[in-house]
Design a protein around this nucleic acid. Structure first.
Lengths: 219, 219
DNA sequence: CGCCTTTCGTTGAAAATTCAACATAATATT
DNA sequence: AATATTATGTTGAATTTTCAACGAAAGGCG
């Protein structure tokens, strides 16, 4: 597990945990690592929500698919990010979302019950980890607020601008690469792909934005 | 504070806390109660996010208002529900949402810092409350997933059906009263009010639903 | 290098949503 | 009880979005 330590140290779940204790904890928690190729399913919709996933390399997407196959991208998770932790923490029966590999990736699985309910060794990390989970869930709730703020806009243009502005604010730059291709961006914004492409073209002509593939510039 | 105990016992923040301890805790936490008339502001957007609100009576709405005055209703909170706790727990600087009284109501305010950081009396409730907050935030994250699932639908009809189905599932009934008037429902679903009214009429004619004011029947 | 697959931009037609305006019903106020 | 205010339903026009279809560009792979 040593080779994952650099990533794990950045994971909010392990805030305030000493390096020396990390290895012991991972054993205690029964952590397991799996590799997934692009497009493979990390968690499938409807499966039991017992495990937290921690992205170690690559990236994954949390998605919902409705009746008619419309995909809604809820979030993208990168190395050190957690996925499915809300469902595991709430001890939900079945996952209402799916998690898929966005590129080849490695994910660590931890049985959430082992965190929430004190283990037989009675090791003292549980309180710290519960605190960390609480903090993390608070931040995640706020991120959902932001997504709702973006998708509640009524037009494609407003949604795109809200998304790009948020991204610019987050990175502190006017020029940035977004983690989505066109179809994925459309699914995230909940609009039609071709309509989005058309709108981007218009906004380029109006010199509101510039864009080349997934590199965007706000002007 | 005694008169609020029935409500407070149902509040998830106090799960696992003995009745006898509750009063002592509220003092330790510096809890305060305020009354608000309908439409008055409980938390204003941009204000510091230090306090958790617990609805004691009546109801409040968590809303966002954009540039052009479009209101987005994020959630409705009823007695024993918490509001703004995600922002307080994340120790956000300023609230990105507003909370307004939906009807005359009473709200209890608790400084979240007093929960997260052990008090001078070093009383033992903090761990339990942090655990409770974590659980509550997990559930709230899931509720946002549900709202996203509803509003990500592309048409007014699909949004309405998704909302009503969810409500029917939650209450276990086909016949129920929703907590919104037409304009509020439109704002929650993120659609135009008149378009929503028209769609409801159509669906009545098609005998998919029946509806009288805010009483809906799924058929 | 050439083939195959996927992504992307464009277009026009069909469908849906928004918007403004108005009439009516319901509720609150004096 | 009369009046004012608010909520709701209806309509048609303007605007947008969606949908399907296509060609060009880009990227992956043998």
């Amino acid at each position: 597990m040593k080779k994952y330590f650099d990533v794990l140290r950045k994971c909010k779940l392990f805030d305030g945990i000493e390096d020396g204790d990390l290895n012991k904890m991972l054993t205690c928690l029964g952590a397991k690592v799996e590799h997934f190729d692009k497009k493979y399913t990390v968690f499938s919709e409807g499966s039991p929500a017992k495990h937290i996933g921690i992205v170690l390399s690559g990236s994954v997407q949390v998605i919902q698919i409705d009746y008619y196959g419309n995909r809604n991208i809820l979030m993208e998770a990168e190395p050190s990010d957690m996925v499915a932790e809300a469902f595991a923490c709430a001890e939900t029966e079945a996952l209402p979302v799916a998690v898929v590999a966005n590129e080849p990736c490695e994910v660590m699985f931890i049985n959430c019950g082992h965190i929430l309910h004190t283990c037989s060794n009675n090791c003292g990390f549980h309180q710290q980890m519960i605190f960390n989970l609480m903090k993390n869930l608070a931040v995640k709730t706020i991120e959902f607020h932001k997504k709702l703020e973006i998708t509640s806009k009524r037009s494609t243009r407003e949604k795109l601008l809200a998304y790009l502005s948020m991204y610019a604010k987050k990175t502190g730059k006017k020029r940035f690469r977004i983690p989505f291709d066109r179809q994925e961006l459309a699914d995230y914004l909940e609009v039609d792909r071709s309509g989005l492409s058309a709108e981007i073209s218009k906004m380029k002509k109006e010199e509101i934005i510039d864009c080349n593939k997934n590199l965007f510039v706000l002007m």
